[in-house]
Every structure is written in structure tokens, then in C-alpha cells.
């Protein structure tokens, strides 16, 4: 079979906006791929999200403008991508975001194409012959597996958000190809009505630029109030370790780490967090990490750019004052 010498990325669009994971995937692919990097973008007929994507400099964008497809039916989208691939040939690789959308669509396409797919990758690299080496966690991030798909194309993967950096390029040279004549057969079995999730009072920790994280040691009402005041001052979002999800006001969406969320803020301030591996697995992409803990041997300090040995609450109050 003749393969297309390109590596593909599926652009994730929600609420008429490109999900940042798409940009992260483009930057990563640009770094590791010898072959041209192509983004497949499915958008509504009146949209032009390719303009946003261009800034990150993929070699090519294939744009499919179709108001039916954007409804988000996995079967219809699988049919569309399958048809596209029939026309172009099978690319060397095809990566998706490991979001609900990506993790639903990619395996269906995988089955259609009868190829291999690795879910929820944390790292990717190519070998000289074009083999995509996919690093995936299993057993709730306790084990890392390296997986390859030697004899089938495309090599498919879904990739976790916020694992890679996204960088805009100066003067990118991106070719845009519009596909207008793609036939879409409607799936009459499902009726999907979508609406934006009600805006939460604070932004989610996965997208936050600044996070104040609190641990088991900070479970008292007073400590919480202090942490919240610091967060307000910093315009930061509160993240928690697992034990705090017991409290009414926090749940898994606020929890950082293994079974919670991976975060990638510009700055993360850890108050009273000791730094179990389950937690640190979720903060490896925080750019600057500051930690305060009474235990001078707290493992979190090894993951920190700056650390303070002492009472986290006092430190938090002092920091609040220093920010006046």
C-alpha cells in the first residue's frame, strides 16, 4: 500500500474555538517530525479557524467546512475522515487530543482503518524509519509503556493536554487546502444537542496560568480561607491534593495529579503539600514551582524552583503581604 509521507494532527474545536492542545501538538510535531505536518480541521461553514492555527506553523491545513460534522457525531466524523484518507492515502501518523472528543473519535477511526492506536500519550518521538514511539502511562500513571505500531499506518495516538508547550512561529509558511465536496451521511440514530457548560466562577485548573495548591495539612477552614485570599491576590485558581476532595467544595476537577488533572500553569504555589508521586505526576509541566512545607525533607522540594521550610500558612500570609 502507498502511504502518504505526512504526519497528521486532528484539530480539536470546541465552542468555535481551537482547543490549545491542538497548538501543543503542532509545536511538538514540528519539533520531532521529518515529514510535513498536516492539521485536519473540521469547522462550521462560516468559520475560519485555520487563521488561528496557521500561527503555530504546520506545513499544511486541510480544512473541511461542514455544519453537520461539527455537531460531533463520532460515526459521521469517522466516515468523513475515512473518506478523506481514501482520497489522500494513509498518512504516516495521525494524532488526536486525549480529550473526550479525541478519545471517542480516534479509536473508532482506528477500528475502521484497522491500525494501532495508543491512548493518552505523554510523549512522542519518531525514529529514522518514521516509526512513532508512543509513551503512555497505565495503572493510573504508575507504569510507563513504550508502544509502537510497526506494520500498520497511520500510527495513531491520542495525547494528553498540557504535556507539550505551544509556540507561535514568526512568518509561518502554511498551505491551506479546502475540502468542500466531502459527502457526509447523517447518522439518524443520534440527536445531539450541545450547549456551553455554564461558566464556572473560576477557570479550570487545567487551563489556569496561576495555581495555589493546598494539601492535607491545610484542611482546616482557616487555612482554606488564607489560601483563597492568596489565590485572589494572585488571580490564581485553587488546586487540591486528593484528600481534600473529601470536602464538599472540591472534586476531581480541582484535584491535581495521578487520578486528577495535569496542570501547566506559569506558576504553581504548593502550600503544605508533601509531594507524593501521584501528585508530582500532575505538575511536571508547571513552569515555575514554589513550595512551602514544615518538613525539610518533603519530596516536593525536589520538584520546586523555590522552596520555603516552615509553616505554609505563615508563608502564605507573608506572600499576600509582599504582593500588596
Amino acid at each position: 500500500m502507498e502511504f502518504l509521507k505526512e504526519n497528521w494532527i486532528f484539530a480539536e474545536v470546541d465552542l468555535n474555538k481551537v482547543n490549545p492542545i491542538t497548538y501543543q501538538l503542532i509545536t511538538k510535531m514540528n519539533q520531532i517530525s521529518e515529514l510535513p505536518v498536516t492539521v485536519v480541521l473540521v469547522e462550521g461553514s462560516s468559520e475560519s479557524l485555520e487563521e488561528d492555527i496557521k500561527e503555530y506553523g504546520p506545513d499544511k491545513i486541510i480544512t473541511i467546512k461542514n455544519d453537520q460534522l461539527v455537531q460531533g457525531n463520532d460515526l459521521e466524523m469517522t466516515n468523513a475522515l475515512d473518506t478523506l484518507i481514501e482520497k489522500t492515502g494513509r498518512p504516516n501518523s495521525f494524532v488526536f487530543a486525549a480529550t473526550v472528543v479525541g478519545r471517542s473519535l480516534a479509536p473508532r477511526l482506528q477500528a475502521r482503518l484497522r491500525t494501532g492506536l495508543t491512548a493518552d500519550c505523554l510523549d512522542l518521538h519518531f525514529e529514522d524509519d518514521g516509526t512513532l514511539v508512543q509513551t503512555k502511562p497505565s495503572y493510573g500513571d504508575n507504569i510507563m509503556c513504550e508502544i509502537v505500531v510497526p506494520n500498520h499506518r497511520p500510527q495513531m495516538a491520542t495525547v494528553r493536554s498540557n504535556v507539550f508547550e505551544a509556540k507561535k512561529l514568526n512568518n509561518p509558511m502554511t498551505k491551506v487546502i479546502n475540502i468542500t465536496n466531502l459527502k457526509v451521511v447523517q447518522d439518524k440514530q443520534l440527536t445531539i444537542s450541545s450547549k456551553p457548560l455554564p461558566q464556572e466562577s473560576a477557570e479550570s485548573i487545567t487551563e489556569a496560568n496561576r495555581i495555589v495548591a493546598i494539601g492535607r495539612g491545610d484542611k482546616t477552614e482557616e487555612n482554606l480561607t488564607n489560601a483563597k485570599r492568596l489565590a485572589d491576590k494572585l488571580h490564581a485558581v485553587i488546586g487540591v491534593t486528593r484528600p481534600l476532595t473529601d470536602l464538599e467544595e472540591f472534586d476531581i476537577n480541582d484535584q491535581i495529579g495521578q487520578s486528577g488533572q495535569s496542570v501547566s500553569p506559569d506558576i504553581l504555589i504548593n502550600l503544605g503539600i508533601s509531594g507524593a508521586v501521584q501528585y508530582t505526576a500532575g505538575i511536571s509541566n508547571a513552569k515555575t514551582i514554589v513550595s512551602a512545607n514544615t518538613d525539610k525533607d518533603a519530596p516536593i522540594f525536589k520538584h520546586s524552583d523555590y522552596y520555603y521550610v516552615g509553616n505554609a500558612e505563615e508563608f502564605s500570609k507573608a506572600l499576600e503581604k509582599a504582593l500588596q
Partner: peptide, 11 residues
């Protein structure tokens, strides 16, 4: 989904 709530009827 991340930012979307879907109400789906399925036959």
C-alpha cells in the same frame, strides 16, 4: 466535553 454539555437522544 471539556466546555460543552450534550443532551443526546439515541435510538
Amino acid at each position: 466535553l471539556e466546555n460543552i454539555e450534550q443532551d443526546i437522544t439515541a435510538k
